[in-house]
Design a protein around this nucleic acid. Structure first.
Length: 490
RNA sequence: CGGGGCAUAGCGUAGUCCGGUUAGCGCGCCUGCUUUGGGAGCAGGAGGUCGCAGGUUCGAAUCCUGCUGCCCCGACCA
């Protein structure tokens, strides 16, 4: 297999595809639109899951599991929800196969038709709210704070590994509250959890904000989001958190008896991040040599490559390498000693670079004599030779520096690619070149739609914080109270 | 769903126009020897229903018909 990557400049999407497949993250499967996540890619996802799951638990949530199948009738109970998802649902109609009486193969047994068809969940609000009805009677049952890790299916026309697949993995939080304010606070809290995760674990700076009506979740009153900027200047929605108001409570008749002995509908939120985060991770830090992983999420943080001329030398180097590996592991560092004798060092260097391992230690006979090791950073591609004295501390410090450097680089990139514009000509010109464009908008869905049709850019978010500033809509010239972020998006 | 393209070994491809030996090449794979501080070299070897089904022909990867699958662009998409 040729390991050469397409360069970003040459063809950014091809570079992304090459990276995902050649770094062994995932591959296309026999099922159209569905991917196989390979062990190395899944290892990164598992790290993400662990960190997020802890953050959910720390904020009082518990995990549970709801069915993959949803009765079709549930779907139609919340009008805008159905409308949003109807076009991309996989439907189960039968429950049995039989041998084809006319010849070879196997066919659907028409006698085994389901009385009520089942939808494969594109999201679980309906089945969950139908269940919550039975769980909630009194204000004493609230708040109900549940998360589930699951797969969902959305029948997408065009798919790309991690970024948009027909089936994907995610978590979905679904909470029920006594009051509107409490639910709003929950939705905002989870948005900040996502933002913190993106920034601290993925080294990915994100903007926090609110979606416009056009981009809002089907069935939500308000959708909060985090948005990141990819290296090609396109925005990527990395997570959403929804304030659902009482929409689902009313649709599924979920009421509780308040302290005042009154029947009231509960207030709801839902929030999720998916394997799409893997795409964001790849596209924000990687380079033309391959993947670049932030140390906190890298399945392997340090790889040790031995250099030797014969078995005797290998044994000596291996002994030292194993000693270093054990020392590092005591400090919680994930280390791999690449002892394969079937590959040359140069090959291993290239391979681990492609796979984005943050630090590489190369050790040979010369190092044994001088008690040193060559250490190479994946993020800067810098190499230096270090004394083995206190190597654990040096490695731990370097990993920390790499994590911070990746974040800073991504933040600098975003700052350099965020622009304020105040007229239509400048807007269209800037949008074409990529990046976030902060501009005034009159607040109407019609204007947003027109802008989308003419430039393919959408409002990525309306900032939650930051100064208000009056101005005129770049499209309609109508008055505006604040700037919003536009970009072309994934 | 519209427009265009493709289907030959695990991957990438030549050959198809103009039918004719044993379907060729690169990467990868296997064996051996030499190598090993940035993607090793040499030698030997394995691996093919040429997407599927029909048809034309003495003879089809190649020509004809139908089908299937995939890719790109558009539409669609939280």
């Amino acid at each position: 297999m040729a390991k050469e990557l397409t360069t970003r400049e040459d063809n950014y999407s091809q570079w992304y595809n090459d990276l995902v497949t050649k770094a062994d993250l995932a591959e296309n499967s026999a099922v159209r639109g569905c991917m196989v996540i390979k062990p190395y890619g899944y290892g990164i996802w598992e790290r993400m899951q662990q960190a997020l799951d802890k953050m959910f638990k720390d904020t009082g949530h518990e995990n549970a599991y709801f069915p993959l199948f949803i009765p079709k009738s549930f779907f139609s109970k919340e009008a805008s929800h159905v409308e949003g998802f109807a076009k991309e649902c996989a439907v189960v109609t039968h429950y049995r196969l039989k041998n084809d009486p006319n010849g070879k193969g196997i066919i659907v047994d028409e006698d085994a038709k389901l009385e009520e068809e089942l939808i494969i969940r594109p999201t679980s609000e309906t089945i969950i709210w139908d269940t919550y009805r039975g769980w909630i009677q009194s204000y004493r049952d609230l708040p109900l704070l549940i998360n589930q890790w699951a797969n969902v299916v959305r029948w997408e026309m065009r798919t790309r590994l991690f970024l948009r697949t027909a089936e994907f993995l995610w978590q979905e939080g679904h909470t029920a509250h006594e009051t509107r304010d409490e639910a709003l606070a929950e939705a905002e809290q989870m948005l900040h959890v996502y933002a913190t995760f993106a920034e601290e674990w993925m080294a990915l700076p994100v903007l926090r904000g609110v979606k416009s009506a056009n981009e809002r979740f089907a069935g939500a009153v308000e959708t909060y989001c985090i948005e990141a900027l990819m290296q090609d200047g396109k925005a990527l929605q990395a997570g959403t958190s929804h304030f659902l108001g009482q929409n689902f409570a009313k649709a599924f008749d979920v009421k509780f008896l308040s302290k005042e002995n009154k029947q009231e509908y509960v207030w709801a939120t839902s929030w999720g991040v998916s394997t799409r985060l893997m795409g964001a991770l790849v596209m924000s830090h990687s380079d033309d040599h391959g993947l670049v992983l932030p140390p906190k999420l890298a399945p392997i943080q340090v790889v040790i490559v031995p250099i030797y001329r014969n078995d005797e030398q290998f044994d000596q180097v291996a002994a030292k390498a194993t000693e270093i590996k054990e020392k590092l592991e005591k400090h919680g560092v994930r280390v791999k000693f690449d002892a394969r004798k079937t590959h040359k060092p140069g090959f291993k260097f290239a391979e681990w670079e492609l796979k984005g391992v943050p630090l590489r230690l190369a050790m040979g006979p010369r190092d044994l004599e001088s008690n040193t090791v060559e250490i190479a950073r994946r993020d800067t591609l810098e190499k230096e030779t270090l004394q083995l004295q206190d190597i654990e501390q040096k490695v731990v410090n370097l990993l920390d520096r790499i994590q911070k450097n990746l974040y800073q680089k991504a933040l600098d990139f975003r700052n350099e690619n965020t622009f304020k514009v105040d007229n239509w000509e400048a807007f269209t010109d800037r949008i074409e070149k990529g990046g976030f464009v902060m501009a005034h908008w009159d607040g109407t869905p019609e204007t947003e739609q027109k802008i989308k049709e003419e430039t393919k850019a959408t409002i990525r978010l309306i900032p939650m914080e930051g100064k208000k500033e009056t101005g005129k809509c770049i499209y309609s010239g109508e008055p505006s109270e604040q700037r919003v972020y536009f970009a072309k998006a994934y």
